[in-house]
Write a protein that binds this DNA or RNA. Structure first.
Length: 491
RNA sequence: GGGCCCUUAGCUCAAUUGGCAGAGCAACUGACUCUUAAUCAGUAGGUUGAAGGUUCGAUUCCUUCAGGGCCCA
């Protein structure tokens, strides 16, 4: 009597028994007037006046005796113990009560009191079945640990693992802090197309779909960038969007095929302005979450109270390689990579090799909050070249707790130069490359109307959630991470 | 894509050198009006991820596949 089918059948039978007793196992509504946490907070007052309160939630543990029972009732605010006796609810109701079990959703009306052992509880006068649960809950003490089940059936994970619920509440708070910060500074929140006829704003492979009526190929966006900058041309001056981007690439603990990105653009600003925003926003999140500018990630403390370290990409890499990397030929860069056993595709350009070298030689050493600056122009086709430093652009990537969390530029606003950069990308990567930035004529037309000098910033919301919630993987901050299907996938 | 590891009852986990597949919780029956991982007495629950192979005998060894995890690319 305990394989899963039988456990479920027993619960279906109990549902039928409830119906025989005249109980609707799925009523439409229940009027509750307080929450479990509020009963704890207001206990002295409410127990003194013997206030009758009503709460609703899920039965988590049930301790039944012959004519009296205790159970823990959990709602989104917390847990409260309830005390059900024949004396208080009547014998008929107690018969119904005895049919209930862990997992069931119930509403109770009762009076706050303290048990002999001192636990704040509700003395139940009346209860209602609100939804019969037909599946057994995981073990009450050890919870649900299996990662596969936790990700596939997040609803069960959330029922039993309070720390998981807390992670997603932190994530929501992070997004709220970001919105407040930008709204207070006059940024306009906008929505731009997710379905795009051309994809751009990043180097990544897209998901492709098809629109039936227009009979055309469409792409799921890989970035919001080019649409948001059109809005800067349009005169909004300060815009942001928080939304999903989609990249048809690998999955690991820092990558999910769909992820949430903040992008913001500010006219008459540059990448230095964006650094200030990053420092301010991260500090505000730390204060909101921890009440302190010091955060701990995977056992290591980081202070967000100070200005972030500035680290030059080309200088740091040149130091590691022992030569000015901007002055090296493709062959010399390849030799440097080969020395370090880095495999490269045949068509790798100088910039791509430098990026590979950076990932291996420099990035692992980044621990403190750091802005990596001075990226090679060739791998930054949307960023403005740095004055007096040819080959290098005004771009930075913020690193928080060793993790790359975003990307920012002084935006390239010269339409002539932008066209050259697009063309250079296509030439570098080849016209067939899905990763090359596409030549977007309408975007160039917009630039021709004139875009003010602009600073732009993208921040990965999932990545910063990993850091601030101190989680090991992006899958732990995404409610429903991408998984292979349980049954054979459709192809 | 490559390497390593994991998959045993609904959940959390055991199982000696290859020798009868177990425990706790959950469930079921009974007792019980202050329990809180309730307690007490009893009952039941397994295609050991799937398919093949080696063997007298496979949860255990081998192969393939599926799903998951970690590391690397």
């Amino acid at each position: 009597m305990a394989d899963e089918k039988q456990l479920i059948k027993v619960r279906y039978d109990k549902r039928a028994m409830l119906e025989e007793l005249g109980v609707n196992p799925y009523p439409t509504k229940y009027d509750r007037d307080t929450m479990a946490a509020a009963v704890h907070e207001n206990f002295e007052e409410w127990s003194a006046e013997e206030r009758l309160v009503s709460i609703a939630g899920r039965l988590m543990t049930v301790r039944k005796m012959g004519k009296a029972s205790f159970a823990n009732l959990k709602d989104r605010s917390g847990t409260i113990q309830i005390y059900v006796t024949t004396d208080n609810v009547g014998a008929d109701a107690y018969t119904i009560w005895k049919r209930l079990e862990g997992g069931d959703l119930v509403g109770v009306r009762g009076i706050p009191f303290r048990t002999q052992k001192g636990e704040i509880s509700l003395q139940v006068r009346e209860f209602s079945v609100l939804a019969k649960s037909l599946r057994p809950l995981p073990e009450k003490w050890h919870g649900l640990k299996d990662k596969e089940t936790r990700y596939r059936q997040r609803y069960v994970d959330l029922i039993v693992n309070d720390d998981v619920r807390a992670v997603f509440e932190k994530r929501a708070l992070i997004v709220r802090v970001v919105r407040n910060y930008l709204d207070e500074r006059g940024f306009l929140e906008v929505e731009t197309p997710i379905l795009q006829p051309l994809y751009g704003g990043a180097s990544a492979r897209p998901f492709t779909t098809h629109h039936n009526t227009l009979d055309m190929k469409l792409f799921l966006r890989i970035a919001d960038e080019l649409y948001l900058k059109r809005l800067i041309v349009g005169g909004y001056e300060k815009v942001y969007e928080i939304g999903k981007d989609f990249r048809n690439e690998g999955m690991d603990k820092t990558h999910n095929p769909e992820f949430t990105q903040l992008e913001l653009y500010e006219a008459y600003a540059d990448y230095n302005t964006m650094m200030e925003h990053v420092e301010n926003i991260m500090r505000a999140i730390a204060m909101a979450l921890h009440g302190s500018t010091t955060i701990t990630f995977q056992g290591r403390e980081n202070d967000l109270g100070k200005p972030w370290t500035r680290l030059s990409f080309v200088d740091a890499l040149s130091e590691k390689v022992g030569k000015d990397v901007l002055a090296l030929s493709n062959d010399e860069l390849r030799a440097a990579a080969k020395e370090r056993h880095i495999e490269l595709p045949d068509e790798a350009s100088n910039g791509m090799i430098m990026a590979e070298l950076f990932d291996v030689l420099v990035e692992p050493g980044i621990q403190d909050p750091t802005f990596v600056l001075d990226f090679p122009k060739e791998i930054s086709p949307l960023a403005k070249e740095r004055q007096g430093r040819p080959g290098v652009v005004e771009r930075f990537e913020p690193y928080l707790c060793g993790m790359e969390i975003g990307n920012a530029f002084s935006e390239l606003n010269d339409p002539v130069e932008q066209r050259r950069r697009f063309e250079a990308q296509l030439e570098l990567r080849g016209p067939e490359s899905e990763e090359a930035q596409q030549l977007d004529e309408d975007y160039l037309r917009a630039l021709e109307y004139g875009m003010p000098p602009t600073g732009g910033l993208g921040i990965g919301i999932d990545r910063i959630s990993v850091v601030f919630a101190d989680q090991p993987s992006i899958r732990d901050v995404i409610l429903f991470p991408q998984m292979r299907p349980e049954t054979a996938p459709s192809k």
